[in-house]
Design a protein around this nucleic acid. Structure first.
Length: 377
DNA sequence: TTCCGGTGCT
DNA sequence: AGCACCGGAA
């Protein structure tokens, strides 16, 4: 049997970094055509107002699409407009964000909503500089919002497109270096079509996340395979250059679960995390970095100075492991016994007693929520 | 157990 | 330039 691969023999490889205008047109068309038939049905793609795209982009920062979908739906149902968001209490915004992580995003989103109301009369701004000036919005997010919602011809560069571009450019050095970041932004800008810039940018990101994956990229499904020198060279595992390994630090933390019973109601002591600490604006049980100290002695001292209460702690009733950035945290939960004294007034941090039911309404971190679920029944 | 990922502060 | 911020997925 004779098989000819005429098309492959005749197709000369195209390097986008040295391409003609006609070749870039082919590239854009291939991407947009793929997007027309392969784009996922996502809730923020239904009604592409700047506000909805903004909320989706903030949620999608550092967070996968599958995780965001339900949060986005709940958020838009409760806050259908920027004015409704601005009018809400921060704690309610954080409650809708509970479990998504990076809670500063929610606080900045809420702050920015007020800025939009006051500075822009409730209309989300439509120039790059005005959008960029809002808290929580950097170069990527400003470009994404304005290209996706208004088709403004603005480039984007984020995790998925960095990887895709590094492969399309056959960039062998670290794409995270500032020199390479500059090249990648230029590359992103050089590819943009005049029309449908938003679909084009989304297509790049979707191919980056669904096809041009870090490991085992699905090159056979890639609509722009013929523009990819990394595929031709079989260098998918070398490009992008692997980053330097993260070095982790192990730390020990302890939660003290302080409870009291009044009129048959069990209440638990919680505190509001303040500015400059993890989980700002969220509620947490009293939590301490234990280090190598002895829990039975040190934790009651800490509780005394924090709250004025005298407690004793027994042995840990629950151990959890979790990670926050570079820290590997082993968290022990100690239930306090023999609680005496009154909560001191004018404490440095905001403290209160909360019933099981009240805990449900308070925004908490994922570990805080697990402790509440497991221990505050 | 390791990897992944935007913004903003220092 | 380096680091903190979070949770989920590989």
């Amino acid at each position: 049997m004779r098989v000819t691969f005429a098309c492959m023999i005749n197709d000369s490889p195209i390097l986008l970094t040295e391409s003609t205008a006609a070749e870039r047109t082919k590239f854009r068309r291939a991407l947009l055509k793929w997007f027309d038939s392969h784009q996922r049905d996502l809730p923020w793609r239904k009604d592409r107002t700047p506000y909805r795209i903004w909320v989706s982009e903030i949620m999608l920062q550092q967070t996968q699409v599958a995780t965001v979908i339900d949060y986005f739906k709940r958020f838009m149902k409760r806050f259908p407009t920027v004015s409704k968001l601005a009018a809400a209490d921060q704690s309610e915004v954080l409650k809708l964000w509970e479990g998504l992580g990076y809670y500063r995003r929610a606080r900045q989103l809420h702050t920015a909503a007020s800025v939009v109301v006051e500075r822009h009369r409730g209309n989300f701004p439509e120039t790059f500089d005005e959008v960029l000036a809002l808290p929580g919005i950097g170069r990527y997010t400003a470009g994404a919002i304005l290209s996706i919602s208004l088709d403004q011809q603005l480039p984007i560069l984020e995790g998925n497109t960095i990887r895709l571009f590094a492969r399309l450019m056959q960039m062998e050095s670290d794409p995270r270096s500032s020199a390479n970041q500059k090249l990648l932004w230029q590359f992103s800008e050089s590819l943009l079509p005049k029309k449908r810039a938003g679909d084009f940018n989304q297509s790049l990101m979707e191919i980056g996340s669904e096809i041009c994956t870090p490991r085992c990229p699905k090159c056979s499904e890639c609509p722009i395979i013929k523009f990819c020198p990394t595929f031709r060279g079989g260098l998918q595992n070398q490009i992008p250059a692997p980053s330097v390994k993260m070095k982790y630090e192990s730390i020990r933390e302890a939660v003290v679960l302080v409870s009291k019973v009044t009129r048959g109601q069990t209440k638990f002591l919680v505190r509001l995390c303040g500015e400059g600490e993890r989980w700002t604006g969220l509620w947490d049980f009293p939590r301490f970095e234990l280090g190598n100290r002895r829990a039975e002695v040190w934790l009651p001292e800490q509780i005394k100075s924090l709250t004025g209460l005298d407690v004793s702690v027994g042995s840990s009733s629950l151990q959890m492991k979790h990670a926050v950035t570079r820290f590997r945290i082993t968290l022990d939960v100690f239930s306090s016994e023999q609680v005496t004294g009154r909560l001191k007034s004018g404490a440095a941090s905001e403290l209160r007693w909360a019933t099981n039911k009240e805990l449900l309404e308070m925004p908490m971190s994922t570990t805080g929520r697990k402790i509440a679920d497991r221990c505050c029944i």
